[in-house]
Simulated scan of single mutants.
Amino acid sequence: MQKTALVPYARLPRTHHDRHVLTSTVDVFGAAHWLLAERAPRPDGDLPPFDALVVSVHPDGNVELTELCAVRARWPYLDRLPDGRFVVAASRTRRHDGADQVQVFDTLGREASSFSVGDAIEHLLVDEAGHIWVGHFDENPAGIRRWSATGKVAWTSYGADIPGLYDCYALNVSGTTAWACTYMDFPLTEIRPDRPDRPVTVRANRVRGAKAVAVHGDRVAFYGGYAEERDLLTRGELTETTVEPTDTGLLTLPTGAAPGRRRVVARGSRIHVQAEPFTEWGVFDLDG
């Protein structure tokens, strides 16, 4: 089977390798961010509020450091707003302590606001307009929603006629558009909330279980699948109503090895993959 190697994209500076990587992402403008703590959370108990360091590596190679005060999330998601503020969210709600799930930190690392978006976060991605897109897994029927940075719902998949939306497997946010693949029918859904005539376009899709999707013009690529297909890269073409697969192969690390445990972030034509120990990002670019 044909293999496609990821291209090295961004690397956590070695001076910060002594800290624990809580999470990492690539934002809508292409900057890579790592959220670091002094230690890993214990599986048998909650971390108290703790201070954390965000290390940002910009596309031009410049490195930026931001100290965040009193982070509450044990298993966090991270992204950056266009104005430089950071969003940190807990994947699960903690009803027993009443704490808001999402924290927004100002550019000095202080909590500026907080709110909740609902339990069972699978994806959290900020778009170019500063909206926060959240896709949920199957323990929350909310599906996909777009939130303002102040915690107001700006769009919801409820009533959007997305078939079989029980779990948001893949979510790509680029510009102000989102693309999603959802369990159990796995249609490729294009979401443009600011287009009043047709905010949602659903295309039938035969690829099952992909964890990421990249789109460029009328071309599409899916990464992942069930069981032995977890490293599968499937390319296809878009029609008005369907996705037509054209070829399949394997996506590997730059070394040619399988990624193993990894994080995946999709932005437009790009699928970013980060393998354990989560200090480096590689990229596959459908426009490359």
Rank of each mutant, 00 (worst) to 15 (best):
T239H: 04
G175Q: 12
V243Y: 04
N205H: 08
V200Q: 00
Y226I: 03
Y183N: 13
T189P: 13
A204F: 00
L188G: 12
R198L: 02
S174T: 06
F186Y: 14
A214D: 03
V213G: 15
V173E: 15
R192K: 10
R203F: 07
P187S: 08
R219Y: 15
C181R: 05
V215T: 09
L188R: 12
Y169S: 08
R219G: 13
D231G: 06
D185N: 07
T246M: 11
G224C: 11
G236A: 01
E244G: 05
G225C: 01
E190G: 04
T246Q: 11
T182N: 11
E244C: 09
R192W: 02
V207S: 13
V220A: 10
E229R: 07
S174M: 05
P199L: 10
A170R: 04
R198C: 01
R208A: 02
R192G: 04
V215Q: 10
C168E: 14
T189N: 08
R192H: 06
T246G: 10
A227S: 12
T241R: 08
D167G: 00
I162G: 13
L165I: 15
L233N: 07
D161E: 08
C181A: 10
Y169Q: 12
A212K: 09
L188V: 05
Y183K: 05
H216A: 10
E240M: 01
I191M: 08
D167E: 13
N172F: 04
V215G: 07
D167S: 04
E240D: 08
F186D: 15
R195P: 06
V207Y: 10
A180R: 01
M184W: 04
P193W: 11
P245Q: 05
E237H: 06
F222E: 09
P163D: 07
A227P: 06
G175P: 02
I191C: 12
V215H: 07
G175V: 03
P193Y: 11
N172R: 01
L165F: 11
I162L: 13
V207F: 09
E244A: 14
V207A: 13
D185R: 12
A214R: 10
T189V: 13
R235T: 00
V243C: 12
V202R: 04
R198F: 00
I162H: 09
R230K: 10
L232C: 14
T189W: 11
T248V: 03
C168G: 06
L171N: 04
R198W: 01
R203H: 03
T241S: 08
Y169V: 01
S174H: 13
G164N: 12
E228K: 07
L233Q: 09
V200G: 04
K211H: 12
R198N: 09
A180D: 08
V200M: 03
H216M: 02
I162D: 15
R206T: 10
P193K: 08
Y223P: 05
A204K: 00
T177D: 15
T239C: 05
Y169A: 12
T242F: 15
W179D: 14
V207K: 03
T246C: 09
A204D: 06
H216T: 03
V200N: 01
I162V: 13
R219P: 15
T246K: 01
G249K: 02
V173T: 07
L188Q: 14
A180L: 02
L171S: 02
K211S: 11
L188S: 15
G175M: 01
T189R: 13
T246A: 11
P193E: 15
